[in-house]
Computed example of a mutant assay.
Amino acid sequence: MQFALPGEWRKADLDDPAALAALTGLLPDEQQGSTPWLESIRAAGAQTLLLSIRATPPSAIVFIWPPEEADGDPSVEGLRRRLGLEGEVITHHDGYATLRQHQTAESSPVDVVTYALAHPDSGRVLVVRCMAFDGRFEEFKIEDFDLAASDLAWEEL
């Protein structure tokens, strides 16, 4: 899998407690340690965490392989039905069904942009969740994420 973003990002595998603790220790105080968002992404099948601490606002990206979505309908409609997402369709360079859902809440300091992609051959789903802590993503950041998601691909083995 390839994923390229501008700026400085640090990576940790979620099964490496030492690397994860070092990385999450760089987050704002209220987001450090074993937080509900970290536990929820682990439970959903997340394997990799990227953090951009120097960004304004500090941001995280997680890659989630939902175990129950290893195969199925690879169409946009199938992706919507399988995940219950009503997001916007993003045009993908290699024909992967790709949706983006942007969730903001006045009561929460966290801004969330979720991408869901289905492999056109197997239907395997990848969910990429982008989170901004203590602020909202500017429109140009979401456009950067759209570009990255529209080029994200993986080989089924």
Rank of each mutant, 00 (worst) to 15 (best):
residue 90 I to G: 04
residue 52 S to W: 13
residue 12 A to R: 10
residue 64 I to K: 02
residue 145 F to L: 11
residue 85 L to R: 14
residue 145 F to E: 01
residue 115 Y to R: 02
residue 51 L to E: 06
residue 66 P to F: 08
residue 120 P to I: 10
residue 113 V to A: 12
residue 15 D to R: 13
residue 77 E to R: 10
residue 127 V to Q: 01
residue 16 D to H: 12
residue 152 L to P: 03
residue 124 R to Y: 02
residue 20 L to A: 04
residue 9 W to C: 04
residue 30 E to Q: 12
residue 112 V to E: 11
residue 17 P to Q: 07
residue 49 L to S: 03
residue 110 V to C: 10
residue 127 V to L: 13
residue 149 A to F: 05
residue 5 L to Q: 02
residue 102 H to A: 08
residue 68 E to K: 02
residue 62 V to E: 08
residue 48 T to G: 06
residue 132 A to D: 08
residue 144 D to G: 01
residue 60 A to S: 09
residue 109 P to L: 03
residue 98 T to D: 07
residue 100 R to C: 00
residue 123 G to K: 03
residue 62 V to A: 11
residue 60 A to H: 02
residue 12 A to H: 10
residue 38 L to G: 00
residue 113 V to I: 07
residue 5 L to W: 00
residue 143 E to G: 01
residue 47 Q to E: 13
residue 50 L to M: 14
residue 73 D to V: 12
residue 39 E to T: 04
residue 120 P to K: 07
residue 136 R to D: 07
residue 34 S to N: 15
residue 99 L to H: 07
residue 120 P to V: 10
residue 128 V to T: 06
residue 4 A to E: 06
residue 7 G to C: 02
residue 94 D to K: 07
residue 65 W to Q: 14
residue 66 P to S: 03
residue 120 P to Y: 07
residue 95 G to T: 10
residue 27 L to D: 02
residue 48 T to Y: 06
residue 133 F to C: 03
residue 131 M to S: 12
residue 77 E to V: 14
residue 36 P to A: 06
residue 50 L to T: 08
residue 50 L to D: 12
residue 104 T to M: 13
residue 46 A to F: 07
residue 73 D to G: 14
residue 57 P to L: 01
residue 139 E to P: 00
residue 89 V to G: 04
residue 113 V to K: 02
residue 14 L to I: 01
residue 100 R to L: 00
residue 17 P to D: 07
residue 53 I to T: 11
residue 55 A to P: 00
residue 134 D to G: 15
residue 63 F to G: 03
residue 34 S to M: 15
residue 114 T to Q: 13
residue 148 A to N: 09
residue 93 H to W: 11
residue 65 W to L: 04
residue 140 F to Q: 09
residue 112 V to F: 02
residue 116 A to E: 00
residue 60 A to I: 05
residue 30 E to L: 14
residue 122 S to C: 09
residue 136 R to G: 09
residue 48 T to H: 10
residue 16 D to N: 15
residue 137 F to P: 00
residue 103 Q to Y: 14
residue 62 V to N: 06
residue 80 R to K: 13
residue 12 A to M: 08
residue 98 T to M: 01
residue 81 R to K: 14
residue 78 G to Q: 01
residue 124 R to M: 15
residue 63 F to Q: 04
residue 156 E to N: 14
residue 18 A to I: 10
residue 109 P to H: 00
residue 8 E to N: 07
residue 51 L to T: 13
residue 92 H to A: 12
residue 53 I to E: 03
residue 107 S to C: 05
residue 25 G to T: 04
residue 33 G to T: 14
residue 6 P to R: 09
residue 92 H to G: 12
residue 105 A to P: 07
residue 148 A to Y: 07
residue 105 A to V: 11
residue 110 V to H: 00
residue 24 T to K: 05
residue 21 A to N: 12
residue 87 G to S: 01
residue 148 A to I: 01
residue 140 F to A: 11
residue 52 S to R: 03
residue 32 Q to E: 06
